[in-house]
Design a protein around this nucleic acid. Structure first.
Length: 466
RNA sequence: GGCGCGGUAGCCAAGUGGUAAGGCCAGGGUCUGCAAAACCCUUAUUCGUCGGUUCGAUUCCGACCCGCGCCUCCA
């Protein structure tokens, strides 16, 4: 079966066929840099990372663009509070964003672009929309007239003919002709950053940056556009109106939306006190691996209910995989190769791929891996898993880790070097042989202090970092 | 009110028209100087409820109940 995705536009799972055979043009709505990323943001970015890696594993070349929103209401508000220019303010959080995403091994897209570096492109697009009659001016701002774009609503499947009873309506938007019209260019307000343009001094509306930058770097039609579900409406709907209003061509072929993360079954919010940034969790001593694993383990179209119990369970699961990798590396196996296990490893790799091909079914993919781990562990205990079977098992684990990236430990941060640990382990083994158990226990305690766990196995001692 | 999503073991969760993957927890066991760790085994006659279609439904159809999201800034 081919690689396939659920497309929000068609509300169906569709085979993925990019415009060019092996090239994927992909755009991601990136962060608004006014704070540290929280785990909800990270759930979406982790999905995008898994998607990237899987596309590459399937032989595609990626051209992935992500924007940084660095001018926006909340940025202006918080920068002012901090007494900084928006440039100073957003630079700090942009850098923090990359530090944080790297901590949980989220790859950096091929191209990262900032909104404020693309004001001329946005202005040109707004002018093009004006020329096509999609806009009107009011109180010094420029608005998009939704009624002028007949496809409006096709992504979010929203029926525009009324029915907003019960919905919250912004009564302040008196200057718009229609409550659903959106702003392309905002007239300057006192104390706000602004740019001089043919429409007057002001700043861009939020939606225009994405369609302008996406088209600049990826062309009029993208293969994939992703973001959180909350962006479906109005942000992505408006991007379509902007891009297609200008080009008349389909803007995006596959829209992929990541569901939200909940905390203890509730929407994460500062007022509920259940709002966590990555830094919060790392300060609480949770490992980056367990966070990444947890965020990746629930398929992206399901809501992910974040709990600390779940995070601990994720850590245990990661440890299980690491122990298995360590066992493959350090245990002694009987000579020979058992064709059964070579075959099993191969079929597991295939089923792993089939799960990910199926709209990035990470839970299914993990199931395949753990099943193989359990069965082959049992075979090792029984002595039927032989030395010649190790490479195939390691291959499987490597394929897994190219996507999930949680097994291979990061470089040790300070502490003892591998050689120092090996020396202490050897000393302890000698002590044990000469029945100097006090010294042996002392070394074990010392290593434990340094974050190194010793494990006595029948094939000797092995160690790992906590 | 409109649109949409989901209800599978204590928790997380995959899945299929033919009789329930996997992870965590828990219980049992193996190993061991002690211990830890590790590993193995066991754990849903049942998939929100009630009907319908079918030889057969958790899986298809209908109704209902419950939870949630979007319709406003939000990953």
């Amino acid at each position: 079966m081919a690689l396939r995705f659920y497309n929000t536009l068609t509300q169906k799972v569709e085979d993925f066929v990019p415009q060019q055979e092996k090239l994927v043009r992909m755009y991601t709505c990136g962060p608004t840099v006014y704070n540290y990323v929280h785990i909800g943001n990270l759930r979406t970015f982790t999905f995008q990372d898994i998607l990237r890696r899987w596309l590459r594993a399937r032989g595609y070349e990626l051209r992935h663009v992500m924007n940084i929103t660095d001018v926006e209401d909340k940025i202006i508000r918080d920068a002012a509070r901090a007494g900084k220019s928006i440039f100073e303010f957003t630079t700090v959080y942009t850098q923090a964003f990359f530090e944080d995403t790297q901590r949980i091994r989220i790859e950096r897209p091929e191209q990262v672009v900032k909104a404020t570096d693309h004001i001329p492109e946005m202005v040109a697009d707004i002018q093009a929309l004006e020329a096509k009659g999609h806009t009107y001016r009011s109180d010094g701002s420029v608005y998009y007239r939704i009624a002028s774009f007949s496809d409006y609503g096709k992504l979010s499947h929203i029926n525009l003919s009324g029915n907003i009873a019960g919905a919250r309506v912004d009564v302040d938007e008196y200057e718009k002709d229609d409550a659903r019209d959106f702003v392309l260019w905002k007239m300057k307000k006192e104390g706000e950053p602004s740019w001089q343009t043919p429409f007057g001094e002001g700043r861009p509306g939020w939606h225009i940056e994405c369609s302008a930058m996406a088209r600049k770097y990826l062309g009029d039609t993208l293969d994939i556009h992703t973001g959180g579900v909350d962006l479906t409406f109005p942000h992505h709907e408006n991007e379509i109106a902007q891009a297609e209003g200008i080009t008349g061509k389909p803007f995006v072929r596959y829209w992929l939306h990541a569901e939200h993360l909940l905390v203890d079954s509730q929407k994460m919010s500062k007022s509920l006190g259940n709002f966590y940034t990555l830094r919060d969790l790392l300060d609480m001593r949770y490992s980056p691996d367990s966070i990444r694993y947890l965020l990746a383990s629930v398929p992206y179209r399901n809501k992910l209910n974040f709990t600390f119990d779940g995070l601990k369970a994720a850590q245990t699961a990661v440890d299980r995989l690491r122990n298995y990798a360590l066992r493959l590396k350090t245990a002694r196996f009987n000579e020979g190769e058992n064709p059964h296990w070579t075959e099993k490893a191969k079929s597991a790799a295939m089923r792993f791929g089939e799960a990910l091909d199926d709209d990035i079914n990470t839970a299914g993919a993990l199931g395949v891996i753990f099943e193989f781990v359990r069965d082959s562990n049992a075979a090792m205990d029984a002595g039927t898993f032989l030395a010649g079977n190790v490479p195939a098992a390691q291959d499987l684990l490597r394929q897994f880790d190219e996507i999930f990236d949680v097994v291979t430990p990061g470089a040790a941060e300070g502490g003892l070097s591998d050689a120092e640990i090996d020396a202490l382990v050897a000393e302890r083994t000698d002590a044990k042989k000469s029945r100097q158990f006090a010294r042996a226990d002392e070394i074990r305690a010392q290593l434990d202090q340094q974050g190194v766990i010793l494990e006595d196995t029948k094939d000797g001692v092995r160690w790992r970092r906590k």
